[in-house]
């Protein structure tokens, strides 16, 4: 177990370092980073001043070590446009994204997992067929389209919910539904497969032969074992929800990190974009690590394989 853990941790650390370097060199490869930051038609003087100010006139390796040591101290630099530390700007937007993704995760898991269990238990029920249709459609649904449809139906036509912004508590409902659909479909599919897998095992037949009803068998035996793949998928789905927020937040004008990303690109505020991408990468590396560790913690078979 400890060897598996150590190897997996090492991988995560290398990924973190690699991503950081990748983003740095991507910017340098694309040409003069200063040109990314200035508005079009800026004078050469202004460009040179900014270059010296930001330290871009120094050798690339010096810049790289500085950049890495700044990041190690969680210093993501200053916003070019607002002249405020990037960390402060991100800090003011982050709660919105966490709130949105959190509600979406609850929705996805709360609807998706029971739907999956139902589809596994009653395979030929009309509702199960409908559910399979939803699983298929949910994976092909562009969020920027489902978002518009939700706005059209619930905000424009029915007038039940606000179409955009985050002023009221119920503002979160539409973007959260929109963001959750794909994950909901994934949870339903994974849960269905996991429960079906479990139900086909001999111990289930034994439990049935003993006289337990289908419902009892599922509740007492199958659910617990089929939770393993669902839990590890959950960690990966959180990463998907966070990156899906970029588009959903744009559709619903939700003031989180996703909207900030797009606004910063439009404003050529590159330090913010870079910080968000790094943050997204770190979170997703961490969640992948968590998924693997969780998986091996609940299922000893994986631990054995990894330790070989």
């Amino acid at each position: 177990m400890s060897r598996f853990l150590a190897r997996r941790l090492m991988q995560a650390v290398i990924s973190v370092l690699g991503v950081t370097a990748l983003i740095f060199f991507l910017q340098r490869l694309a040409g003069d980073p200063v040109l990314l930051l200035v508005s079009e038609g800026a004078s050469q003087q202004a460009i040179d001043a900014l270059r010296a100010n930001l330290g871009f006139d120094r050798p690339v390796l010096v810049q790289f070590t500085d950049y890495m040591s700044d990041l190690a101290r969680f210093d993501f630099g200053r916003s070019v446009v607002q002249q405020v530390p990037v960390v402060d700007i991100i800090g003011s937007r982050l709660p919105y994204t966490i709130w949105l993704a959190g509600v979406a995760l609850l929705l996805a898991l709360g609807v998706g997992a029971p739907l999956g269990v139902f589809m596994a238990m009653r395979r030929d029920h009309p509702l199960s067929r409908l559910g399979m249709g939803f699983v298929l459609a949910g994976q092909s649904l562009p969020t920027f389209w489902s978002g518009v449809l939700l706005i059209l139906l619930f905000a424009v036509t029915l007038g039940w919910l606000p179409a955009s912004g985050a002023r009221e508590t119920q503002s979160v409902i539409l973007p959260a539904i929109c963001l959750s659909l794909l994950s909901m479909a994934t949870f339903a599919r994974v849960t269905r497969t996991a429960v079906l897998d479990e139900l086909s095992k001999p111990y289930i037949r034994a439990a049935r032969a003993k006289g337990l009803s289908m419902g009892q068998v599922v509740r007492r035996h199958a659910l617990r074992n089929s939770a393993i793949p669902v839990i590890s998928i959950a960690a990966l789905e959180i990463a998907n929800l966070l990156s899906g927020a970029v588009i959903v937040e744009t559709v619903f004008a939700w003031p989180g990190l996703g909207q900030l990303t797009i606004q910063s690109i439009a404003a050529r505020d590159f330090p913010i974009v870079q910080a968000i991408v790094l943050l997204g990468a770190f979170v997703s590396i961490f969640l992948n690590l968590a998924a693997d560790l969780l998986y091996s913690a609940v299922d000893p078979r994986i631990r054995l394989e990894g330790g070989k």
């Binding site: 991988q11 290398i14 990924s15 690699g18 991503v19 990748l22 983003i23 991507l26 990463a239 998907n240 966070l242 990156s243 899906g244 970029v246 588009i247 990303t261 797009i262 690109i265 974009v273 870079q274 968000i276 991408v277 997204g280 990468a281 997703s284 590396i285 992948n288």
Partner: peptide, 14 residues
Amino acid sequence: DIVLSVPAILLAII
């Protein structure tokens, strides 16, 4: 591993 560890849409956007 490194490229796959960045969420694809974020990497594409940056």
